[in-house]
Design a protein around this nucleic acid. Structure first.
Lengths: 229, 229
DNA sequence: GCAAATTAATGATTTATTCAAG
DNA sequence: CTTGAATAAATCATTAATTTGC
């Protein structure tokens, strides 16, 4: 057992774009949010009780202690490391916290969205992730989240519009678009079943890497990009 | 088993995209960003390229057609297969669609819940899954879902009780319990960061198998099972 | 011009609901 | 009717834009 990991440093600097502003306008400030106090840190107590066969003690969580938002930056993502004796500080990494999509990535995603894709299934996510990986680091979950957020925000934007100015005489904002191909979702009664859970896909800067339920001895072929099919 | 694939050449050109203009936002492509920094040199590419264009066609969905609810059972999950030549019908498990927890599994989960566990993190889920695997087939997501559903239902049950009979003189149903150890969730300001996404864990009937972000070169130890069954 | 302060956007999680197998 | 599975809605948190005071 060992967790060995390497730290990849990750050069985040490439592709930085100078500024660039999008045309849309901004709207009002957001609601104030209050940050919770957090204080009360409880100490960890573990009371264990002896027990039974099912060794409860082993569940004591290894890491992930109460997190203080305030305390410097916690590197989210790789929380994995952590265990006590970790080699220190090094790195700590900057790297990265959340996915920062490139223009191309967003462009592709929007194109897919405009074509009707809404909730891509595992396979599609892999494919998309692989493709987008050519434009920057990205993981499957980012794709998944993107569609979820985009769909939700599009929806609320539309609702706002329809309510805000219900007097629009004309068909106001043409709702999304039409699918060019099925996504397994569409509007039909929910698809379900085509889920993303339980699969991980990672794309490295140079090249790509995808896998899936490998342990289960089913390998997923990675779509050749540009297939022709 | 193997993951075969690779490829990636493909440069930026996409957007040939015929019709399709994005609404406002996102403007221009502009500065060519170079992505692949480094290396990449790879022989192959030539950069330049021309190419490609993000072959939309490749996204045509392989399977997952519109689903008719009525149509017999589609095995959800593995939608993966699908593509033509997949090897065998592996699995297809007969009836098995959803997880069917055994008494022991539920017992353990409830014990953990009663002890305060609410939203186990990835590591914990792995561990739990592994342990429960000794009592029957189970996957990480089942554990994840169980806690989610149980928490939610406990909550609504409580709400119902407090509203339904607000006159109960006595403290009616003693709310959950107290945590014996932190789970990283609890009630304190949400923990966040300790997520389950991006990790997969599978436990077979006989033995176990867990893995995690392997591709990313971090290996996770597998908890020894031995169960005392 | 520039960097801290502020605000808008949006990625990532959690909670609430809904669907459906058994 | 119980409850596993999934999706949608609500939130939280971090980053990029923008603004503001030198």
């Amino acid at each position: 057992m060992v967790l060995n990991m390497k730290v990849h440093q990750f050069a985040r600097g490439f592709w930085d774009e100078p500024s660039l502003s999008l045309g849309c306008k901004r709207l009002r400030p957001l609601a104030p949010k209050l940050q919770q106090p957090t204080s009360d840190n409880t100490t960890t107590t573990t009371t264990t009780t002896t027990l039974t066969t099912f060794d409860l003690k082993t569940f004591i969580k290894p890491d992930c202690g109460p997190r203080k938002p305030g305390s410097s930056h916690d590197h989210s993502k790789d929380s994995s490391s952590s265990s006590s004796s970790l080699q220190t500080g090094v790195e700590t990494h900057p790297g990265g916290t959340r996915w920062n999509p490139t223009q191309e990535q967003i462009g592709i995603l929007e194109m897919l969205y405009s074509r009707g894709m809404r909730t891509p299934n595992a396979q599609q996510i892999e494919h998309i992730t692989a493709q987008l990986g050519n434009y920057g680091k990205i993981e499957g979950k980012n794709v998944f989240y993107w569609f979820q957020n985009h769909k939700a925000r599009e929806r609320q934007k539309q609702k706002r519009n329809s309510l805000g100015l219900p007097h629009s005489p004309r068909t106001p904002p043409p709702p999304p678009i039409i699918p060019a191909f099925h996504t397994g979702d569409e509007d039909s009664p929910y698809k379900r079943k085509c889920l993303y859970w339980g699969f991980e896909c990672l794309v490295e800067d140079n090249g790509l890497m995808c896998k899936k339920e490998e342990g289960h001895d089913r390998t997923l072929e990675l779509f050749p990009l540009h297939p022709e099919r």
